[in-house]
């Protein structure tokens, strides 16, 4: 396979070079740095509006949004789990201990097997950044934990929320080569008669707690 493989590579590269050499040199546009980027790249709204927009957009795509103070997070988590009739969840490593109500069972993500992820009803995670404009949370890590359990709860700190996609990409640049997952609402499909259905293979429920600074 190696030989065929390198022959194919050489063939493709030579065809690309040939194709590009026949294209008029005048067509060569400016280099990458000079590409015009006149789209919105920074925030235009007040912090309050950004947070409100984030919550609204999440709502529109069927996520549940709760606002919290730093000290009230654990009681909201407790209420949510109680409402779901659950006394346990798998928790991502960056979730601070003080957010977790004391008398419940917490399993650490690092210690969970694929079977545990599959069987778990609830997962609690945090995100790296969040985008108001699109109602998106962006995760580093927790790829399976944010996918297999039926319900996903993400705690978002207010300062993590940016207005636009370009601002988020800028914040994510240091982690560009990590595994990043953008989540916008619960898993969904519209493949049958364009009817939007929540929860195909990923979590059916997405709960977001916004912790105000």
């Amino acid at each position: 396979m190696t030989e065929i493989h390198s022959a194919a590579r050489a063939a493709i590269f030579s065809r690309i070079r040939e194709a590009n050499s026949t294209i008029n040199a005048a067509m060569r546009t400016a280099g990458y740095q000079n590409i015009q980027r006149e789209y919105q790249q920074s925030a235009s709204m007040s912090r309050e509006t950004i947070v409100r927009t984030f919550a609204e957009r999440l709502h529109e795509y069927d996520a549940n949004v709760y606002e919290s103070t730093p000290t009230a997070v654990s009681s909201i988590i407790a209420q949510l789990l109680a409402a779901y009739g659950q006394r346990s969840a798998i928790v991502a490593k960056d979730v601070p201990r003080e957010w977790l109500p004391k008398d419940l069972n917490w399993k650490k993500e690092a210690e969970a097997s694929i079977g545990d992820f599959d069987k778990a009803e609830d997962a609690i995670i945090v995100c790296e950044t969040a985008i108001a404009h699109t109602g998106t949370i962006v995760l580093r890590d927790s790829r399976r934990l944010s996918l297999l359990p039926d319900r996903l709860l993400c705690v978002v700190r207010e300062r993590q929320i940016v207005e636009t996609v370009p601002e988020a990409i800028k914040r994510l640049q240091p982690f560009a080569a990590d595994a990043l997952t953008f989540i916008s609402g619960p898993s969904a499909t519209a493949d049958i008669e364009m009817t939007r259905i929540r929860g195909v293979h990923g979590p059916r429920i997405l709960d977001i707690i916004i912790v105000r600074d």
Partner: peptide, 29 residues
């Protein structure tokens, strides 16, 4: 570059399914 995603991830979902962002994007290296 990674930065170019800021353009395409805004254009693609709105054009494809009429969503502001599709539920999942995975980027891994």
């Amino acid at each position: 570059s990674f930065r170019d995603l800021e353009v395409f991830l805004q254009l693609l979902p709105r054009s494809a399914t009429g969503e502001r962002m599709n539920p999942y994007n995975t980027i891994w290296t």
